[in-house]
């Protein structure tokens, strides 16, 4: 009895010791010498591997930071500026102050605004629908609503609204990694400045068709009339290819352009209601006329 016990203990210990020795030498032989700072930086990153920085993932970002020792060209759009400062501190560098961005869906072609003209009956993929035809509303630039952006989002920050059929970005969850921007075959989604108190003004249309055909498909399309361009006191609005675009770096959120738009293509978010003119050039009214 005693012998058995003793034998078991001794043999097990011997196996343990031998394994440890082997493992030690193997570890020595195959050791990869790595800058310890890579681990430190990687720790500070979100670890979602979203690719928003343009590199293969968070580890790759950390390696790049350590290799170049330069943060001016690298930015993790997902991390808060606080986290970026910490990374900079760990590297002994200065972090550039970055304006927080958010994904903005520039299409308001809901079923009510852009009525259905044909039935699409194929694979539920925007990319395929885009290559097949102009979509159910007929607008060649509008949102198709099959959710390629939703699939691409690693942060659950975007979903398709059941009523409008359009994607909605959650202010809270969106980290502006840009995955949806690349996923959208029609380049509808744009990363724009998040704005103070989440206040933003943007042209919610990317249709480059002339006014007539654009309006035929969608009541809230930008028809390229240029009224907003004239109205803007800061020259923030440009008109290219029958489409107005508000430069968020120049825009000061004065809200002058929004009421002049004849189709209601300019949208404001999170502003307090207007006092003097409560009657919005609402899309509902336009649909009724059309």
């Amino acid at each position: 009895m005693d012998n058995t016990l003793l034998f078991a203990v001794i043999s097990l210990s011997a196996i343990g010791v031998i394994s440890a020795i082997i493992l030690y030498f193997v570890a020595q032989k195959f050791r990869v010498i790595e800058d310890p700072r890579i681990d430190i930086v990687a720790e500070l990153l979100p670890g979602a591997n979203c690719g928003g920085c343009g590199l293969a993932g968070c580890r790759a970002f950390a390696e790049e930071v350590v290799r170049t020792e330069d943060l001016s060209k690298l930015n993790c759009p997902v991390s808060s500026s606080e986290a970026m400062k910490q990374i900079a501190a760990a590297m002994g560098l200065e972090a550039a102050e970055k304006d927080p961005l958010i994904a903005v869906v520039r299409c308001n072609g809901s079923r009510a605004n852009a009525p259905q003209k044909v039935i699409y009956d194929s694979a539920g993929s925007c990319a395929f629908a885009h290559s097949l035809s102009s979509g159910e509303s007929g607008c060649p630039n509008g949102c198709l609503g099959y959710g390629d952006c939703v699939v691409s989002c690693k942060f659950d920050a975007i979903y398709i609204d059941a009523v409008t059929g359009l994607p909605v970005v959650s202010d809270e969850h969106c980290v502006a990694c840009g995955a949806c921007v690349t996923a959208c075959p029609r380049s509808i989604i744009e990363l724009r400045s998040k704005g103070k108190k989440d206040r933003r003004i943007y042209v919610s249309c990317v249709n480059t068709e002339k006014g007539g055909p654009a309006k035929k498909n969608c009541s809230v399309a930008c028809i390229g009339c240029g009224k907003c361009v004239k109205e803007c006191p800061y020259e923030a609005i440009t008109l290219v290819n029958n489409l107005a675009y508000i430069d968020y770096n120049k825009c000061r959120l004065c809200r002058k352009c929004e009421p002049v738009c004849p189709t209601g293509a300019i949208l404001e978010t999170n502003f307090p209601p207007r006092k003097e003119k409560p009657a919005e050039p609402a899309s509902v009214a336009d649909t009724a006329e059309a």
Binding site: S122, A123, S125, A127, F128, S131, L132
Partner: peptide, 13 residues
């Protein structure tokens, strides 16, 4: 299954 739809998409990409 929409096999050809995805094949077309893949060919494109």
């Amino acid at each position: 299954r929409p096999l050809l739809d995805y094949l077309r998409l893949g060919k494109n990409k």
